[in-house]
Nucleic acid binder design. Structure first.
Length: 267
DNA sequence: ATGGTTGAGCGTCAA
């Protein structure tokens, strides 16, 4: 069975839910993971999933910021026994188990803190939070080793490799690409995951999933970063079939600053 | 070093 998993930082579900049919037409996902939904749970649009052909929906949202959601064509159970990262209760993680998929698949949807502007944890509490968050997630998954039948997606807000940013040299001191962040992200990945997108796109090739709103012409300047990721446990690597990074989505009307990323598995 | 833009929700804060 072919399974397509999409991750997208939608940057307000209520504002951009009208783009979801376009995304579904373009990528035919079986499971859609969203970040920055910015919608509190009590007013989450309940009928949206069914209307789009995804009858199984989970969401964890709060007022104003953050928020994650999962839309699925297949049934799942929510894995509620997850750590409260950094003790903040801030709606950055949602995990489910898809018992009917393959040998049973576990899926984790993350929204890692962006980290503010100043890349110094002593001066910037948001950056300290980001580093603490990634350290906690690494330790948590390391304690579960060996990890199997698990997919981890999301806006991880770190571009780990030189060709995950438009200029490695110019971004070395910019939050999202500092050595302390890229080292931390790769340490988390290396407790048991493979980068499912880089499996298809060589490290030598530039690849981005985010372009700032603050560029007059994002495509011409092309100052992008690859902040959105799909990781799979090593046992799933032989099931990888393709990846799609939907760059054209950056030109959709009233676009998010992130574009959807899709990986297809044969499970 | 700074500014540039967008979203939530109504003054700024977060990204």
């Amino acid at each position: 069975m072919s399974l397509r998993i999409v991750t997208w930082n939608i940057n307000s579900l209520r504002l951009r839910q009208g783009l979801l049919p376009v995304l579904i037409e373009a990528l035919s996902p079986d499971i859609l993971c969203l970040q920055e939904t910015k919608v509190p749970d009590p007013i989450f649009p309940k009928e949206l999933g069914s209307a789009l052909g995804f009858p199984y929906v989970a969401h964890r949202g709060m007022k104003g910021y953050n928020g994650v959601a999962i839309f699925s064509r297949a049934p799942f159970t929510i894995l509620n026994e997850q750590p409260d990262w950094c003790g903040k209760g801030d709606c950055r993680h949602l995990a489910i188990a898809l018992e009917s998929v393959g040998k049973g698949l576990e899926l984790h949807n993350f929204y890692v803190p962006a980290g503010g502007d100043v890349p110094d944890p002593e001066l910037n509490p948001k950056f300290a939070h980001k580093l603490e968050f990634v350290a906690e997630t690494r330790k948590h998954f390391a304690a579960r080793s060996p990890i199997t039948n698990l997919v981890l997606v999301g806006d991880l807000n770190i571009a780990p490799s030189e060709n995950d940013v438009w200029s490695h040299r110019q971004l070395l001191n910019v939050v999202s690409h500092t050595p302390v962040e890229t080292t931390a992200l790769l340490a988390w990945r290396d407790v048991g995951f493979a980068d499912a997108v880089r499996y298809f796109v060589p490290e030598s090739k530039k690849l981005y999933t985010w372009w700032s709103y603050r560029n007059r012409d994002w495509r011409a300047s092309d100052r992008g970063r690859r902040l959105d990721h799909i990781w799979v446990s090593h046992d799933l690597v032989p099931t990888l079939r393709q990846q799609i990074t939907l760059k054209d989505a950056r030109d959709w009307p009233q676009a998010s600053d992130h574009v959807p990323v899709c990986v297809e598995l044969a499970v």
